[in-house]
Design a protein around this nucleic acid. Structure first.
Lengths: 157, 157
DNA sequence: ATACGGCGAGAATAACTATTCAGGTTTCAA
DNA sequence: TTGAAACCTGAATAGTTATTCTCGCCGTAT
């Protein structure tokens, strides 16, 4: 397939974000048109992938017409809040054993939990290791592990 | 078409809202299943309409899976905020003439503006009348009209 | 240089959602 | 009661979005 002189992906995605905040875009086809008139020719498939990567949401405007919007920059940018969110949604239990905490979660969600934990740069956490439904949290010692387990468990409700 | 013993619509919609807040629902088909197992058999078409009427939004959860959610009950419930939102999005200009204010807006948005104005029960506003792209705001006198025009105009830009 | 591996993209298609159409119900006024 | 109108719904279908499959374009290692 010919690649041939295209706007690089990051730049295209910035363009999408910009277009979408400037005016209402109600479908990927419409967005495709907007990009084209900005000199960027891509297919709907690519736009679909960009939209997912940008985390755009499709809501409706005041008149009930569909519209893509950037996600709220309110909570998602706070790593503590996003950890709380994953745990609340997928966490099952957190038990301590020696210097590690075993976090059980819904199938597939462990990597997300590990990522959220990493981003938080918790002082007591040395590192994480995620499987599919289990996330290992390594701390320096049993005391720290106990405290972290309690902290995580509390967020699970 | 046989109507025959169905859950009334408002009740079905409450059920949908409840299901959707309780667990992740990623498609209308999935929701249809959930409703069925709650003893409510409807088609996808009906669910699509309910979702629109409930104002549900389709976002993604922490793992990137699609999920329907109820809209934020933050701003949409405050009529002042929703007026500000319509004006910001669709308002073009507001000019005063005698005791009325003529609000020009994007095609189709005038009724939304009028509705928002009505809900606000502004002391200086006696009534509104909306066409497609024009909304007339009636006040008791020129002074009030002038003040209202300024207020509305400020919310636009 | 050649081979391998990953990434990004388009084409085709599957999956999903909205709308149109037609028929049944209910409400209300005459 | 009897139309008439508004409403609600399912079936079919149109429209929209996500995914699969395949391939080209680099890096990097052999």
């Amino acid at each position: 397939m010919q690649q041939l002189r295209q706007l690089p992906k990051p730049e295209r995605q910035r363009l999408i974000a910009s277009v979408v905040t400037r005016r209402r875009v109600g479908s990927q086809h419409e967005l495709q048109g907007a990009l084209r008139s900005a000199g960027c020719e891509v297919t709907q498939a690519t736009i679909s992938r960009d939209i997912r990567e940008l985390g755009l949401e499709k809501t409706r405007d005041v008149l009930g017409r569909p519209r893509y919007v950037l996600p709220d920059r309110g909570s998602r940018s706070d790593p503590r809040e996003s950890l709380r969110a994953v745990l609340a949604q997928f966490g099952l239990r957190a038990v301590q054993a020696q210097n590690i905490v075993v976090v059980q979660s819904e199938l597939g969600s462990a990597p997300a939990i590990a990522r959220a934990l990493d981003r938080i740069e918790h002082a007591k956490v040395i590192g994480t290791l995620a499987g599919d439904d289990t996330c290992l949290v390594i701390t320096s010692g049993p005391t720290e592990a106990k405290s972290v387990a309690a902290e995580l468990g509390a967020a699970m409700h």
